[in-house]
Design a protein around this nucleic acid. Structure first.
Length: 733
DNA sequence: GCTGGAGCGTCGT
DNA sequence: CGCTCCAGC
């Protein structure tokens, strides 16, 4: 079913594109779509019970295409049926059985063409078929995951949590689950239709600042969805009209006015319909999914306290943890829970997982598996750093900035390159983070904590993002509604009216998001052999001790104090680029916006350090103090001479380590520019990453400069203001 | 102009 | 599962 006519309805929010734009990224695939189409090539054999692997070969063609674009595929499969869909599934099964009987009968009579047609319609994708594909994928180190219930919710989780950059499917429902990006109708060449959540307001004909995912969800449910048939005469257009007119944030109550708003006096909205509507909303928002990183069943979004267990029952119920894992791995039948396979991700050979390149000859995917402990580790690190906003792996403590790169390096391993659009919080989410008083506070909310994993194992989506749908952690007891949308709150409210946060340069302020772990505040080994530190005293000192390569044991000492002598390395703002081939150190002084270069000596052997960009945000402290205590210092690029595939640009690392800063880049763009411009920007960024090896140093530096400027403007945009000297008063802007 | 049901195609050779 | 067509309101 899906949402009838949703794809054409979303035309304004979609664009033709090729999957290659997600090169070096990760895609999550609704495997059912491929299997279902693949079955057509061998429907007769299957209906006759003859063995065939044609459908597996069909799916592998797509997978190989993705691998050839250096894309990591994650195949997602359906699990058990939701209670809400039990009726639908029953009807489908009956229909298939009917077609099968008729087909056999026609075949017997001799009407082969007609019989074939019916038999094709009688084939359903079984878990055994899925398992054949899963086994084939596991041979190639391609990740698979079986959802506890619907693949849709699982796919959305992978997308929202940042594990996958985009979802490939044919089912328009994915947008309702909150996916950021969905690629529909992808063909074997990789061409498809990309629907971007950030553009949904265009289809809704609502200004982006008033758009909320809740409204979009309500509209789609009203027009009829898998969990609730539509009221007679209500389609997407009527539903949109109602949502646009409605100002009542309690949708349960608002629905009573549906008839009068749409001039459909005969329309009767029963309480049963309104209750079912809320259940449908809950099923979309809080469906049970499996987090591969913590290996537990969790919910797509954290349920608010006003949602009862009875209501959550419709969104799926947990099973015991061991079975849940086996189900997710595809080892057992979702319905009978009978064991059919014995895949154990912990037995995967480490060398396959650790390696991060593609070996074309073997066709073996060398991506890090989501089931790998190492992937889990990296995600946790990323998440911890994200949580504390230790985004750049730099910190400034007691006049000493310490560079810690081992984490950064791991992040590079994990996300070789990020698609800049993929990881971004949208503008409203950022705003919500700053203005929200309770929903974001996952850790302090006992109700939510009950439903979320322990602190060590909190899923990325739960920590990094707040529930994208819920606007409040509602404490009202009026209805099971997902009550208020932010629409009303946003009305007439301009960013500039938000009370600004004063940044006090005199104290080290550690935000929940940007602070660094205390344990990390010392010299920390970059690698096994390297220690690198930056100290802020009267002059910036960048010191590199004991640079050794692993293989040849060459020592490469670079004392950057040299740079200070000619004032080339400014305290407040600089960028260093080491070109080892030419023994040259490039320096960009951002205050002067000039570049200088300096030759240095190094051993003839290969050093591991190939490119080091250090950027210090001068504007934050631009009133001057010679002290550098509070410089917002950030490592923006560190490239290792390992493999060309690892060469990561500053922009890429910004994203993998600093979701907020990189995200805000697009916030500014998207809020000020047209869709066309935005697309242009993103394609530029993709282009640059594809040709990153050929990229000139000056391009890198100019990007970096832009990055710093962007951060400053964003500080202002999001309500931060530098504290005025000798003034403690907080003024409203 | 919008809704909604019926009927068709999905692969591959 | 989506798409197209078309009758009906």
């Amino acid at each position: 079913m899906g949402i009838t006519g949703l794809l054409p309805f979303l035309e304004k929010a979609s664009k033709r594109t090729n999957v290659s734009q997600f090169s070096n990224g990760t895609v999550a695939i609704d495997s059912y779509c491929w299997l279902h189409k693949g079955i057509f090539s061998c429907a007769e054999k299957l209906s006759m019970g003859q063995p065939t692997d044609a459908y597996v070969r069909y799916c592998m063609k797509f997978i190989n295409m993705l691998l050839s674009h250096k894309i990591k595929p994650i195949l997602v499969f359906d699990g058990r049926h939701l209670p809400a869909k039990a009726q639908t599934e029953l009807k489908r099964r009956e229909s298939r059985q009917m077609n099968h009987r008729k087909g056999i009968e026609l075949m017997r009579i001799g009407q082969h063409a007609e019989a074939r047609n019916l038999l094709r319609r009688s084939i359903d994708v079984t878990h055994e078929m899925a398992l054949e594909l899963i086994k084939q994928c596991q041979k190639l180190n391609v990740d698979c995951i079986v959802a506890p219930y619907e693949a849709d919710a699982q796919l959305a989780y992978l997308n929202i949590s940042g594990i996958a950059d985009v979802v490939i499917t044919e089912d328009s429902d994915l947008t309702l689950f909150g996916c950021k990006k969905v690629l529909f109708k992808m063909d074997l060449n990789g061409n498809g239709l990309l629907v971007d959540q950030q553009q949904l307001h265009l289809a809704m004909e609502i200004p982006s600042e008033h758009f909320s995912m809740d409204d979009f969800l309500y509209m789609c449910i009203l027009s009829g969805c898998d969990y609730l048939p539509s009221l007679p005469g209500i389609g997407l257009n009527k539903a949109r009209k109602f949502i646009k007119i409605n100002t009542d944030c309690d949708i349960h109550r608002a629905l009573t006015r549906l008839g009068s708003y749409l001039n459909m006096k005969s329309l009767v909205i029963t309480k049963e319909y309104r209750d079912s509507f809320i259940l449908a909303v809950i099923t979309f928002k809080y469906q049970l999914i499996f987090c591969p990183l913590i290996r537990k069943q969790i919910r797509l979004n954290s349920p608010t306290s006003d949602i009862t267990k009875e209501q959550l029952y419709y969104a799926g119920t947990e099973i015991d943890p061991d079975t849940a894992l086996q189900l997710a791995l595809g080892n057992c039948d979702p319905f009978t829970l009978k064991m059919l396979h014995n895949f154990d991700p912990d037995q995967i050979r480490n060398e396959v997982n650790k390696c991060n390149t593609w070996v074309q000859k073997t066709g073996l995917s060398r991506h890090i598996s989501i089931w790998s402990k190492e992937y889990k580790l990296m995600q946790n690190q990323l998440q911890r750093s994200s949580q504390k906003k230790d985004l750049m792996d730099w910190c400034t403590v007691n006049s000493e900035a310490v560079l810690q790169t081992n984490r950064l390096k791991k992040c590079i391993f994990m996300r070789q390159q990020d698609n800049s659009e993929c990881e971004q919080l949208n503008q409203k989410e950022i705003l919500d983070i700053y203005k929200s008083t309770n929903t974001m506070d996952v850790e302090n909310n006992p109700d939510i904590n009950d439903l979320t994993p322990s602190e060590d194992e909190v899923s990325p989506v739960l920590i990094r993002r707040k529930n994208q749908f819920s606007k409040y952690s509602s404490t009202t007891k009026t209805s099971p509604s997902l009550l208020c949308t932010s629409k009303r709150r946003m009305k007439g409210r301009n960013l500039m009216h938000i009370r600004r946060t004063i940044i006090d340069e005199g104290t080290v302020t550690e935000s929940k998001f940007f602070a660094k772990d205390i344990s990390q505040r010392n010299n920390i080994p970059i690698n096994d052999n390297k220690i690198c530190s930056v100290m802020n005293s009267n002059e910036v000192l960048v010191e590199e001790k004991e640079m050794k390569t692993d293989k040849n044991n060459h020592t490469n000492n670079i004392d950057l104090r040299l740079l200070m002598e000619n004032n080339e390395l400014k305290k407040d703002s600089c960028c260093i680029d080491i070109d080892e081939k030419h023994n040259t150190l490039f320096i960009l002084n951002e205050c002067k916006n000039v570049e200088t270069s300096k030759t240095f000596n190094c051993d003839s052997g290969k050093s591991q350090l190939e490119h080091l960009d250090i950027s210090m945000d001068g504007n934050i402290k631009n009133n001057n103090t010679n002290e550098l205590n509070n410089i917002n210092t950030s490592l923006t690029s560190l490239e290792f001479n390992i493999d060309s595939d690892f060469l990561v640009q500053q922009g890429d690392i910004n994203i993998s380590n600093s979701r907020l800063w990189s995200d805000t880049k697009v916030l500014v763009q998207s809020s000020n520019k047209t869709k066309k411009n935005k697309n242009k920007n993103s394609s530029n960024s993709r282009m640059s990453t594809n040709s990153k090896i050929n990229m000139t140093n000056s391009t890198r530096r100019s990007q970096q400069l832009y990055s710093v400027q962007r951060q400053q403007s964003l500080l202002s945009t999001y309500g931060f203001e530098k504290k005025k000297l000798q003034s403690v008063t907080q003024d409203k802007y």
